[in-house]
Amino acid sequence: MTKYIIKRLIGMIPTLFIIVTLSFFIVRIAPGGPFDGERALPEAVKRNIEAKYHMDEPLIVQYGRYMFDVIRGDLGPSYKYKDYDVNTLIGVSLPNSVVLGSMAMAVALLFGISLGVLAAVRQNTLLDYIPMSLAALGLSIPLFVFAPFLQQVFCMTLGWFPTTGWFMNDAPVRTAVLPVIALSFAYYADIARLTRSSMVETLRSDYIRTARAKGMKNSTIIFKHAMKGAMLPVVSYLGPAFAGILTGSIVVEQVFLVPGLGKFFVQSSFNRDYTLIVGVVIVYSVILIVMNFIVDIVYAYLDPRISYK
């Protein structure tokens, strides 16, 4: 097991390397630079600024320098927010995004798995139809429709929740409710559908028949015998789900004005704030890769047939 983990850890390096390289070059190759607008500046000053940010060096040297900095954990200064460095900007906003994302994931998993199992066990009853129609809705309503809709109904019309604010910045905790619901809905839908179908499939399998022939109770069969196998597709879905929640949080943060990383990301793309873009992408990728890694480990733990070699 340890060997497997180490191997997977080493395997993460090329992915990270590719991400950093790709985003670095995409951003640099693109026309237009962060200081191009300041033409009014005297040539000398401009050169000074560029020298300060090492932009006068050849691209490959800049790349090497940047790589070296990233390995040390320094994402460099922001080109646009002049007095901040990327680490500070990300450090301020990342916790909000991480909390939002993990709460959404937790909610999606909790409801998705429990309702999915329920639907599978009580097939073709109301307990099946209601969660599954909800899931069908979740699958078809895009986040950017659902989030404004929630805001319109629960903030504007009913007035149950404040329209803006975020509970980590001295606002009441209920400000978190709508963003979390909005973000988790689509993933609830996927997880519930996946859980249901794989549970139904598992319950039909031969080894469940064996368990029934042994005289086991239904609940024991479901939770002890079927759960592990049925959870495998759900676990392998979690990797893409994390990626989706990362991108989804951009919309949610915009609609509910959560001071998270997503807003920064879109803004820095418009501003061509190179270091900030690459920094945000690296942070997102690290989160994603770590999550994929955890998912793989959990999968290997659940399925004894996976060899660790």
Binding site: S23, I26, V27, A243, L246, F265
Partner: peptide, 19 residues
């Protein structure tokens, strides 16, 4: 596999914003 590990929607966003 490596491409799978990328937050590709973000890369798309960058591309759209820049190109």
């Amino acid at each position: 596999d490596i491409m799978y590990g990328l937050p590709y929607m973000l890369l798309v966003i960058i591309c759209m914003a820049i190109f």
